[in-house]
């Protein structure tokens, strides 16, 4: 592989890893806190992209603000999902997953009806031009995803480890009964977890909007990848999810560049199978969920 191609692929890997990480941490958090397996997570991502479509491409708001707008919007969707779907099915992971599968259909149909199917939304790229690193051209639009992800992931870490409310989320994930006894409201924690899950998936979608074709089905492939990331990382582990996200980002990007996209996904799955055979609890998973 030529140096330029190599650098290009490395850069793209980091970008992919950043998106995977941003999308997956919310999924891991929701699952860790109360075994909420969100099938509609890909649609949260998709709707985040549509938020940017509406506010930036249609209404002309600055791109940065449009991305920020995705945060409360999709967080609210996350809260609703928790309240209406996960809370009534609490205790039954499969039921929650299947019910959110139903939500997936609902959201896809709604997006298609509201904004139309058939043609892909092309969102004007706010940041034209490219950075030149070791001879490789990397679009600025892509590059900015990396610091955005770093900030988002850093913020999440800070919240979970330095803020009492965030620590409550971890306590709830480790022992819900004991957490309840300390005065931690389980309902508030599950709402918070799904709100964060929505916000993060939504922002990822928003950032990808100028890069990826915006369609009601853009979240489908990402869902499987996100779940693979969460499983490889260790079901409820946030750090594991981030690590797995970047590893998978590298695998996908390099294999796609050298071979093709289909092979990339297959190699990713093989990697997951390998990890599960060697360490069934995942990279950073613990015996206790």
């Amino acid at each position: 592989m030529e140096l330029t191609t190599f650098v290009q692929t490395m850069a793209n890997s980091v970008v992919s890893g950043s998106i995977y990480a941003t999308v997956s941490v919310g999924l891991a958090l929701a699952f860790g806190v109360m075994k909420m397996a969100n099938h509609a997570h890909g649609e949260f991502f998709m709707l985040g992209a549509y938020v940017v479509y509406v506010f930036y491409a249609l209404a002309g708001m600055p791109f940065f603000l449009a991305v920020l707008a995705a945060i409360p919007t999709i967080a609210a969707l996350g809260l609703l999902t928790e309240r209406l779907i996960f809370r009534p099915t609490r205790g039954n992971v499969l039921a929650g997953f299947m019910a959110t599968a139903g939500l997936t259909w609902i959201l896809q149909v709604l997006a298609g009806r509201i904004w139309g199917l058939g043609f892909m939304k092309m969102i004007p790229t706010p940041y034209m031009g490219a950075a030149n690193i070791a001879g490789a051209q990397i679009g600025l639009q892509r590059v900015l995803i990396v610091p955005a992800a770093v900030i988002l992931l850093g913020f999440l870490w800070f919240f979970l480890h330095r803020v009492r409310l965030g620590k409550g989320l971890r306590a709830c994930a480790q022992d819900p009964d004991a957490a309840a006894l300390q005065g931690i409201s389980i309902n508030k924690m599950t709402s918070l977890a799904m709100g964060i899950a929505g916000a993060y998936a939504g922002v990822a979608g928003a950032l990808m909007a100028p890069i990826h074709a915006v369609t009601p089905y853009m979240g489908r492939d990402l869902l499987i990848t996100a779940f693979i990331v969460v499983i490889v990382g260790g079901m409820a582990s946030i750090e594991g999810a981030v690590l797995a996200a970047f590893i998978l980002g590298f695998i996908h990007t390099f294999v796609t560049t050298i071979f093709d996209a289909t092979s990339a996904i297959m190699v990713g799955v093989a990697f997951m199978a390998f990890i599960l055979i060697v360490k069934p609890t995942g990279l950073m998973g613990r015996a206790k969920a």
Partner: peptide
């Protein structure tokens, strides 16, 4: 609680902080 049920992946300080959550 029975079997103590401390939060295993949190520090001593964090466990105590959780006691004072509210």
């Amino acid at each position: 609680p029975e079997n103590r049920r401390v939060f295993p992946y949190m520090t001593v300080a964090e466990n105590l902080e959780m006691g004072a959550f509210l």
